[in-house]
Design a protein around this nucleic acid. Structure first.
Lengths: 337, 337
DNA sequence: CTGGCTTCTGGAAGCGCTCCCACACTTCCA
DNA sequence: TGGAAGTGTGGGAGCGCTTCCAGAAGCCAG
């Protein structure tokens, strides 16, 4: 036997207690004009006394906004979210949303079911907006996302086309700065471990790599795909060493692959950085603790999340925020001094 | 000028098209009895033709369930969610929820505002249930969570008290198995790098450490807190070496600290495992790639998420699922063969 | 054929809120 | 001094769904 369930007070109860109409009470709650100071005060007191909290469900049904935004990863790799990159982005988004009343819904669409859910979501007003990340190659969701009236902000560009709203790290510039650093350090035989070719970030990093080499009058010593994983990077490095035993530097499209490369180099008896310099991309904490500590292109991951949320909010509010390219910056450590 | 917004069809429209009452249509949608086969078929066809999708907001308002569960981290460390542990748990939860219609709301309550939001959430029916993780020492939310009628499942036990529903890895047993392994390997002077004393997991791991030593007729060589961070682990290891230069093994309460310990040991010229064996806890991927690869207590993190979701669902459905202790298992690698 | 089941059926009352609108009362300026 | 414009005020119609309830229809034992 319980005491009667302490039902949440409703707006009607607040209004009754304050001696005003529900409409007036609603205006006070939402901080709208056309309420006298006296009534405003009365309502505010009633709210305090009753511990009133607006019911977001009712609000969503009656009004336009739903009160939540979705962070969706549309990937083909189950568990991709476990990548620390996304966790950091999520923290950034969440910390921005904390200043608002919006809730963050996580939609990890890495299965057919998940994708179906995301598709349905885009076609209906069940959230106020969507941050869409990790879209691969020809993901049909990209087109869907562009057609829906729901504001969709892309975290990272899709492989083709340019969405209306996006926030993207400067992948090309970052890759370029890495290569420039290697060239400045006297390296001439520079290879690259590339990421997945159906990810725009991987393509852009490879582009930057090639550009910088061309500008320096060099050409790539070799390239090998590493699939953005540590194991893949290790294998790729081994292949590169076979192909170009004379290479004196390698640029990996992310830190995980760079760490794998370090392992492979060690196993093959190459000293880092004396024989081979290594540069990664991301700077996600693990880089600092690598052995040797990894020189890497830092990207402001948490800021990325922050900006994604900011842009999405602006879009929801009917503004037309401009897309954003976030600067990246080379962090020099021992692996490529 | 836009074409008319392609509003989502409503249940009324489905009912009209199928030539039945809204009530009947609702019954079909919810798979309830008392609808003739003929009407059922008609409604199903109308649903297909119209592409009808129930509006969860309206559903939530009218019915009892809200259609979402909350994953809340009540911590004092902003950005704690960036810890790969939580990302993995989240993946586990999400993959379980994918089989249901429930959405996952993320509430990172690491600020006063966030905690206030969590408090309000617990006091209102704005979600169907809550998974609460990372509660520290005397977090007042624990009491609140126990009082609310909202089902709350704890991921990891709070420091004091035993909640009605929880899923917890076998921290004590895992720590014990680590120490037993060290003792079996001939180590006698065993130190520990402990976690934060206001986390039950840290306390339990220290307990297991002490128990196993006692059982082996030994006593702790030394203990030093490492705050669960890599940098903290590194500093702690340095202190341990000063205090007990003769130690031949160290158990760290998580992998991050163990990695820090590896660095410190290397810097101090100790060989791992020849001079000092190192064991960590968690086995989160980074352990495999450490140098040397880290022996560590594996805990089934994704399964933890999975079970949390399962238990929560059962609780929501009015059952009284039993709490769960998930087994941990020592993974032997080179740092403590 | 009657009464008592069980199975259908749909009207109507909400869930708690927002917002349109009609109306009242002030200003303020031509 | 009339009325346009600005400020308060609350009634009421929804938002799209679930669910209660009253009643119709079908079925079988007595």
């Amino acid at each position: 036997m319980q005491t009667s369930p302490p039902r949440q007070p409703t707006l009607d109860e607040v209004a009754a207690r304050a001696g005003v109409s529900r409409t007036a009470a609603s205006r006070v709650i939402n901080n709208l004009p056309y309420v006298s100071e006296a009534k405003r005060a009365a309502v505010e007191q009633a709210v305090r006394e009753l511990g009133y909290v607006p019911n977001p469900t009712a609000r969503a049904l009656a009004g336009r906004r739903v009160g939540s935004v979705v962070l969706a990863l549309s990937s083909d790799q189950p568990g991709l979210f476990a990548d620390p990159f996304f966790a950091e982005v999520t923290v950034g988004i969440s910390s921005f949303l904390e200043q608002t009343e919006l809730e963050l819904v996580l939609l990890l669409a890495d299965t057919a079911r998940g994708k179906e859910r995301l598709r349905r979501l885009l076609g209906s007003r069940r959230a106020d907006g969507v941050v869409l990340m990790a879209v691969h190659g020809d993901d049909p969701l990209v087109r869907l996302a562009e057609q829906t009236e729901l504001p969709v902000v892309f975290g990272g560009l899709p492989l083709t086309g340019t969405p209306r709203w996006y926030v993207d790290p400067d992948n090309r510039g970052g890759a370029r700065s890495a290569v420039e650093h290697l060239v400045r350090g006297g390296r001439r035989t520079i290879a690259m471990i590339t990421g997945q070719p159906d990810l725009q970030a991987a393509v852009a990093r490879e582009q930057g790599f090639r550009e910088a080499l061309t500008l320096a009058g060099l050409s790539p010593a070799a390239l090998a795909p590493g699939g953005f994983t540590q194991a893949g990077g290790e294998a790729a490095m081994a292949r590169l060493l076979t192909e170009r035993p004379d290479l004196d530097a390698v640029f990996a499209a992310n830190d995980g692959m760079a760490l794998g490369a370090l392992r492979a180099l060690r196993r093959h008896g190459r000293r880092v950085p004396e024989d081979v310099a290594v540069i990664g991309f991301d700077d996600l904490g693990e880089a600092r603790y690598a052995d040797p500590p990894l020189t890497t292109v830092h990207q402001p991951v948490r800021a990325l999340g922050h900006e994604l949320a900011r842009v999405l909010l602006a879009a929801i509010e009917g503004q037309d925020p401009s897309p954003l390219i976030l600067p990246t910056r080379l962090t020099v450590r021992a692996s490529a001094p």
